[in-house]
Simulated assay, not measured.
Amino acid sequence: MTRVGELVAYPLKSCDGVAVDRAAIGPEGALRGDRSYALVEAGVDPETASVGGGGGYVNGKSEPAVHGLRAEYDLTGPTDATPTAVTLSRPSTDRAPADERTFAVPDRGDELADWVGEYLGYPVDLVRDPAGGFPDDSAAHGPTVVSRATLETVASWFDGLAGATEMRRRLRPNVVLDDCPAFFEDRLFADRGEGVRVAVGDTELIGVNPCQRCVVPSRDPDTGAEIDGFRETFVRRRRETLPEWTASDRFDHDFRLMVNTVVEERSWGNTLVVGDEVTVEDVVAVDDSETPVAGRDSAAE
């Protein structure tokens, strides 16, 4: 029986995650509180910014120094990962001394941004979206899914990686599945125009897209040090281990891993729980924006 082994939210985008036992689905389909805050270059509008490197977000794609920040959170509640306070620590640099501070948010958000900007060497803003957060995939806001066996397998491709836990920190999924084979999550997407309905306890997710990876998984999540040849090794080994069930025109290159999902409105407010049984159900139609049209309760976002 495939089940949920771990739930992880990332209250401050591009910083450390926090493991939770239960996670409510928010009003746009994301885990409540996941990526509810983000850092952007000062003056950048997060609505028009790109998550790609140099697109305005201060993230691992554009700023390797982000990996040096450690984050812990006080959360709103047992099913809501929206932070009420963020504790950040930073290493010593030529620009700023090593330090640790706790910032109540949103009240002390400007102070948090100033403190991070001092560390980075340029001004940044802390922005907030308490509803849908700031996901990388603007069309598929739902929890991202991968199996623990996948994490273990991919970690084994690279010398010195500390197994599934380190690979999880590099890939940053929301849902880690247990009791299933490596690359099980590749069963959770189909061809373009289609999605795969997945029951997770009492909640339904629709898998739509294998996640295109970026430079972040190649970097040490604590130091930012990059593994030489990471992409080339990943692509070669992914091709060598590709299961037969991965056949899909969405899987158009081998630098893809993990699955993006959407959540129909009828499941908003439901709660995912560690230990929930996971069952792959049927294939449904999705529209061009990868929002489900089969059985949905409201118009596309």
Score class of each variant (00 low, 15 high):
residue 121 G to H: 12
residue 177 L to F: 03
residue 54 G to L: 12
residue 75 L to M: 01
residue 120 L to M: 07
residue 153 T to L: 15
residue 80 D to P: 05
residue 93 T to M: 15
residue 43 G to D: 08
residue 88 L to I: 13
residue 131 A to S: 13
residue 130 P to L: 04
residue 48 T to H: 01
residue 129 D to W: 07
residue 87 T to D: 04
residue 150 T to E: 04
residue 158 F to N: 02
residue 104 A to F: 10
residue 49 A to E: 02
residue 133 G to Q: 07
residue 160 G to R: 01
residue 137 D to E: 13
residue 172 R to Y: 06
residue 116 V to N: 10
residue 68 G to N: 07
residue 101 R to A: 10
residue 130 P to N: 04
residue 155 A to S: 01
residue 100 E to K: 11
residue 47 E to I: 06
residue 140 A to W: 02
residue 158 F to W: 06
residue 73 Y to K: 02
residue 45 D to P: 00
residue 72 E to I: 11
residue 162 A to F: 07
residue 94 D to T: 15
residue 45 D to E: 07
residue 72 E to T: 15
residue 61 K to M: 09
residue 118 E to R: 08
residue 65 A to E: 15
residue 156 S to R: 03
residue 64 P to F: 05
residue 78 P to A: 14
residue 111 E to S: 13
residue 77 G to D: 09
residue 82 T to A: 13
residue 172 R to E: 00
residue 94 D to S: 15
residue 170 R to G: 00
residue 151 L to Y: 00
residue 101 R to I: 06
residue 46 P to F: 03
residue 103 F to H: 09
residue 120 L to T: 05
residue 152 E to G: 00
residue 97 P to I: 08
residue 63 E to N: 09
residue 115 W to V: 09
residue 95 R to M: 15
residue 135 P to G: 11
residue 57 Y to F: 14
residue 99 D to C: 10
residue 63 E to W: 08
residue 163 G to Q: 03
residue 83 P to I: 02
residue 102 T to H: 07
residue 171 L to N: 08
residue 170 R to M: 02
residue 178 D to K: 07
residue 49 A to V: 08
residue 119 Y to M: 14
residue 114 D to W: 09
residue 56 G to N: 03
residue 77 G to R: 12
residue 134 F to V: 12
residue 115 W to E: 10
residue 91 P to E: 04
residue 111 E to C: 12
residue 55 G to P: 05
residue 133 G to W: 04
residue 66 V to D: 01
residue 117 G to V: 03
residue 155 A to W: 04
residue 156 S to P: 10
residue 67 H to F: 15
residue 51 V to P: 14
residue 65 A to W: 12
residue 172 R to C: 03
residue 76 T to A: 15
residue 163 G to W: 01
residue 176 V to N: 02
residue 140 A to Y: 10
residue 154 V to Q: 00
residue 69 L to A: 09
residue 118 E to A: 10
residue 151 L to P: 01
residue 94 D to G: 15
residue 86 V to C: 06
residue 132 G to A: 14
residue 67 H to M: 14
residue 115 W to M: 07
residue 176 V to Q: 00
residue 141 H to W: 15
residue 111 E to Q: 11
residue 126 L to V: 13
residue 57 Y to W: 09
residue 54 G to A: 03
residue 138 S to V: 15
residue 72 E to H: 07
residue 46 P to L: 06
residue 56 G to W: 04
residue 91 P to K: 07
residue 74 D to P: 12
residue 139 A to Q: 14
residue 58 V to H: 08
residue 88 L to F: 06
residue 105 V to W: 09
residue 76 T to N: 12
residue 143 P to G: 03
residue 43 G to R: 02
residue 125 D to F: 13
residue 95 R to A: 15
residue 89 S to E: 01
residue 138 S to M: 14
residue 105 V to K: 04
residue 106 P to M: 07
residue 116 V to W: 03
residue 90 R to V: 12
residue 161 L to R: 03
residue 66 V to P: 05
residue 86 V to L: 09
